[in-house]
Every structure is written in structure tokens, then in C-alpha cells.
Design a protein around this nucleic acid. Sequence first.
DNA 1: AGCCGATAGATGACATGTCAACAAGAGCGG
DNA 2: CCGCTCTTGTTGACATGTCATCTATCGGCT
Lengths: 156, 156
Amino acid sequence: MDEPRWLDEREQRAWRGYRRMRRLLDLELSRQLMRDAGLSEPDYDVLSDLSETPDQRLRLSELADRMLWSRSRLSHHLSRMHQRDLVTREECPTDGRGSIVVLTPDGRRAIEAAAPGHVAAVRQNLIDLLTPDEVAALDALTHRVIARLTGDRAGT
Amino acid sequence: MDEPRWLDEREQRAWRGYRRMRRLLDLELSRQLMRDAGLSEPDYDVLSDLSETPDQRLRLSELADRMLWSRSRLSHHLSRMHQRDLVTREECPTDGRGSIVVLTPDGRRAIEAAAPGHVAAVRQNLIDLLTPDEVAALDALTHRVIARLTGDRAGT
DNA sequence: AGCCGATAGATGACATGTCAACAAGAGCGG
DNA sequence: CCGCTCTTGTTGACATGTCATCTATCGGCT
């Protein structure tokens, strides 16, 4: 770590742009979700992952892994969502320690009500602003970075 | 909002990839910063913005605007950083309400110690994984989205 | 000067996230 | 079947972020 390789001007612009976009997009999307559907982004993500599952249910740790959340965070969050009747917990029949997170009817209604507006906002503020090439580039680039960060042993 | 235009497969992959990359990159960068320099990402951002400034000082609200933070958040965070002697507050000579955030010597040492490792991590996990074209695309695309979200009236 | 709406920043209550510690099973090896 | 260790999920303490509110001041207007 003698003379660090700083970012050149273009790299710098891209990096700062990425972080600024990230922040602004987050603010906008969470504002939209809360206003139109009364959900936070984390709420939406939980409901969305659950609703895409065959029986609207998942083992807590399975859900935590998919979301890249700690079990603790998920457990706390589920307690809060439980109080609003968006999800329930059931005991796992095959593992006495386990608990299964289940989407409630209210939860299903909430995600179905929220989804169209959310997708529209994602389009309006990101996807529809990109050319098809850019969408493809974003796809490629993000998955390369993901592979790196999840230790997909292959390159370097 | 009759029949929403859902994301097609490529768009979906790009969007999910973006979010997953975001999360993984955050985890990695904040882990690295904390481990090697004892700073959180927010700490780093504050110090970094301050250190790029002529006199290592900024009006609180100016700093908040640059960072896209609420004044409240910044005020709380500065109090915490103040306890660690990374920053101080001074009264603003031209505005009796104002307060000026100043980088302390400890703060300067902290950012200078942290920067090389942080930049290296950014390179290693993002920038150096991209082709020059991809860096250019990221630059272009993020700034277009930023323009949209900050209401740069021009298009649509 | 004196009023008044707007702005700067601080603060307290509360929501959310992190971390370390814990209880209860699982599951393997004797 | 027992004992050991690992995993699962919960919990409480604490760090961080948000929101509403408060005080002091600014700055234009009369």
C-alpha cells in the first residue's frame, strides 16, 4: 500500500455518480412506497420475497440468506411486521428450532397493492431512462461484481 | 395504473443485480473500513467531504446538502464524531444561527489513514472489474438518473 | 426601531439495525 | 442413550436514522 492508485477523473465521476444515484433513488422509492402503500422498503422486500414463494412461506434463515440480512435483523423486523398482521410465524415440522415465516392475507393484499406503483417508480426513475444497451451493461456488470463479492472462485 | 408494465426478464435481472450488488458492496466496504480504520461509511463520508474543502470546514447545512442528509441526521452524527475528536463545531461569524463544522487534526489523520485502503477496496470490488466502456456507461447512466431525480428540468 | 415569516441547528421520542449472549434442538461419535 | 458441538432463532443493550418540535436568528417590510 505504498502509493495508492487513486481513481482517475472518469472513475471518480462514475463512483460518485453511483453513490449519489443510489441515495437519491432510495429516497425517492421509499418515499413513494410509504406514501402510496404505507410500506417501507424493507417491508416491501420481505413481502415480495415471500410472495414469490410457492406456499407464501419460507424458513426464517432461508429468507434471511436470500435478502442478505442477519437473522437477528430479520427476526426483529418480522416481529414488527407481525404486529401489523403482514406475516405470521409457524413452527417448523421438520426442525424443532426452526420457524417458518408465512405471508398473511393482509400481507398479500399489501404487496399486491404496492407492487404496480413501485414497479412504475422503478421504471420512471431508472429503467426507462436507460437504453437497452445500458440495461444489458448494468446486468452484466452487477453480476460480475456480485460474483466477486460472493467468492465465486474462477478468476483471480 | 390499469395494467402495469412489469419488468421484462432482462430488466428484472438488471434491477435485482443492482440491488444485490449494492448490498454486498456496502457490506464489504463498511467491513473493510471498520476493520482497517475504525470508521463507519458515514464517518468516512463526512471526513472525506470536509477534507476536500479549502479550509477543512463547512457550514453544517452546506455539508448536509452535499451529502443528501437531513440536518438532523448530520447534527446527531457530528455530536458522535465530536466525542471521538474527529470534528468540532465553531460559531459562524456571518450568521448567528449557523454553525461551522471543522475537521480536527485527529480527523485529518483518520481520513488520511483510511483513504488508501478504502480506494483500494473500491477498485478491487468494483472499478477494476469494469471495462473502460462500462465505467463510461456507469458514469453516463448514473448522471442521467441523478438529473431526473433532482428535477433538472429539460426532458419529459 | 419593531414585527413577522422563513431558516439554521439542536434536541427528544421513537423506529430501525447491529452485536453479543442465550436457550433449545439437531446431529454425530462414543 | 449420552455428551459434545454446531445451528437456529430470540432477546436486550446499544448505535444509528427519522420525524416533529423548539429556540434563536435572519432579513425584508413598515
